[in-house]
């Protein structure tokens, strides 16, 4: 049995613009506002996603309210979380926020999966099938077909389920909106003040800028955008699972931001698309390899199985990331000269 290159290509392109790519692009836009523009060390961005996700999920599941009210709650909870995390820590050095965010995001995950919260959060089982209202409006629903294929010349490049296509339409529209918002904000005097805080908080204060207020505003704004990303993720799956919000997700978002280039408007989108296209193409390729006749030596060396390809792809991707840092530390959109600049 040979390698099916068609499925690899289809996975590469479909996942490159797929739900994960969209969700992580959006989350990274929020992190970019935090770190890229304001210099805030947020190591618990997944916590903001979880706050958004559980905001919408719990409103439907526990409070038995509509999904749309849930979306409002999903905006409110990340705001509250940002205020709770920011108010005590943003007067202190940058590291305090980093420590607090990573701890808070884990505390949140452990709290929602606690058995005692069965009625409220669904505990470790999570909340399922809560987002039907969202899919009622799906303009792609049509009888008979489940999936949409885009296959010029017989080669399937994109393949999506109707429901996913609907999430993607809404999601990428929101991504475009957040990009526009970031772009406009960062070229305003407000964005200039934000960047001055990233560069040197004391200088900003000496010039009359209330660094604390700016940092808090940035933390809330980026946190809410992360919350929206979390909401879209759980709506697309019709499932809120506590263990999808583990700390690895935060560092995945950081990876994506760094691939794209920190502090550039479009970098989260580029980084996310590149990451998901490559990682999906890679795992599909390796899965194809399992069923392929390789030389015995190679087979023994790789020892591929369905289980270990999942881990192996991260090993390979980690290696690729190191190469990227070596040859292009500024990321796709970054400017190497700018990166080398420092206050001497």
């Amino acid at each position: 049995m040979g390698i099916d290159w068609g499925i690899i290509i289809q996975q590469f392109f479909s996942q490159g613009v797929g739900i994960n790519a969209m969700v992580f692009a959006m989350a990274a836009i929020g992190l970019n506002i935090h770190f890229g523009y304001t210099g805030l060390l947020n190591f618990g961005h997944v916590g903001f996603m979880a706050a958004g996700a559980y905001g919408v999920g719990m409103t439907v599941f526990w409070l038995d309210q509509s999904l749309w009210l849930g979306v409002l709650v999903g905006l409110l909870l990340p705001t509250i979380m940002a205020l709770i995390l920011g108010i005590p820590t943003l007067r202190l050095r940058a590291d305090y926020l980093g420590i607090t965010t990573i701890a808070a995001s884990e505390a949140l995950r452990i709290f929602v999966r606690w058995r005692g919260n069965q009625e409220r959060t669904g505990s470790s089982g999570g909340i399922n099938d809560f987002a039907d209202e969202f899919f009622e409006f799906n303009i792609f629903t049509r009888p008979g077909t489940e999936t949409y294929d885009f296959a010029p010349g017989g080669l399937t490049i994109f393949q999506f389920r109707a429901n996913d296509l609907w999430v993607l339409l809404i999601g990428w529209t929101l991504v475009a909106f957040f990009l526009l918002l970031t772009w406009q904000l960062m070229r305003s005097p407000w964005g200039r003040a934000l960047k001055s805080i990233r560069e040197d908080e004391d200088a900003a204060r000496a010039l009359g800028k209330n660094a604390y207020a700016y940092k808090l505003q940035a933390l809330v704004l980026g946190g809410v955008i992360g919350g929206v990303a979390g909401m879209l993720q759980v709506i697309s799956r019709q499932a809120v699972q506590p263990d999808t919000f583990n700390p690895v997700i935060t560092f995945l978002i950081w990876t994506i931001l760094i691939i794209g280039g920190v502090g550039k408007v479009a970098s989260p989108v580029a980084g996310s698309m590149i990451y998901w296209a490559l990682i999906s193409g890679l795992i599909t390729f390796m899965r194809e390899l399992i069923g392929t006749d390789l030389s015995d030596e190679l087979e023994t060396f790789l020892n591929l199985s369905v289980l270990n390809v999942d881990q192996l792809r991260f090993v390979i991707f980690g290696g690729a990331l190191m190469l990227l840092m070596w040859f292009r530390p500024q990321g796709v959109f970054g400017n190497r000269e700018e990166m080398a600049l420092e206050d001497r």
Binding site: Q184, L185, S188, P189, R192, K195, E199, D202, D343
Partner: peptide, 28 residues
């Protein structure tokens, strides 16, 4: 404390006090 990764002009513009555009509510 020059703001290294900002232009000289942006450094200067930042110095001005009481700028309306520096408020989040007016920035857009």
């Amino acid at each position: 404390k020059s703001l290294a990764k900002m232009s000289v002009m942006d450094n200067m513009l930042l110095g001005a006090g009481d700028q309306r555009g520096e408020k989040l509510s007016f920035s857009l």
